[in-house]
Design a protein around this nucleic acid. Structure first.
Lengths: 96, 96
DNA sequence: TAAAGTAGTTTATAATATAAACCAAATTTT
DNA sequence: AAAATTTGGTTTATATTATAAACTACTTTA
């Protein structure tokens, strides 16, 4: 009955990041920090986990002279997100 | 944009328990353990947390000679669950 | 009556989330 | 141009959480 909830996605901040990237396709560190309201430290750690899981790609570049970290969702991340949402339906009683 | 996800409900097992109690109104320990697939120890701890939060009531009795722990959702628990589901919609992009 | 099962609780440990402290480079202020 | 501040992060320490393993108390079965 209850499907397992992917623990990598079952985290408030990582879920928020994935949620943004699902519709934005690409977003930089500062944007993600502002949209989620997270601290930079926390965001840094969670981005790292999502990247290591292969759910997002992280690209480092410069915008002018300032460093810029850009994140984008991968096909794998997109699929995992969809699966998570589907599993959640069991718990919250809303069929997708 | 992203509402806070009630950390008491944002837990796989506690969410499963609440989900069952939302539709069952009352369920005993063994039933909850079987439905969720959780270990008795974990379930015991999580039931305790939900009770302390005022989200469920826990009644101890005997079925024949065997002890029986029965859980039921409270109005407060029901409201918190609804609020959690509503907040989740922000993250998973499904309006309730 | 000994062994095995039931219904849990307590406790120890592993995993997680989070913020605080830090760093290097860029920018602004004096 | 030196000092102070801001920006864009990372690392690390700590608090919280989840979980299983070990335990208790009692019951049933062989």
């Amino acid at each position: 009955m209850f499907k397992e909830l992917n623990p990598l996605l079952h985290s408030e901040l990582r879920l928020a990041v994935m949620s943004i990237l699902i519709s934005a396709e690409s977003a930089d560190f500062v944007y993600l920090r502002e949209r989620t309201g997270a601290t930079a430290g926390n965001l840094s750690v969670q981005i790292d986990k999502l990247q290591k899981a292969g759910y997002i790609t992280v690209t480092k570049s410069f915008k002018g002279k300032m460093p810029c970290t850009t994140c984008a969702i991968t096909a794998e991340g997109s699929a995992a997100f969809a699966e998570y949402v589907d599993a959640l339906a069991d718990y919250i009683g809303r069929k997708p």
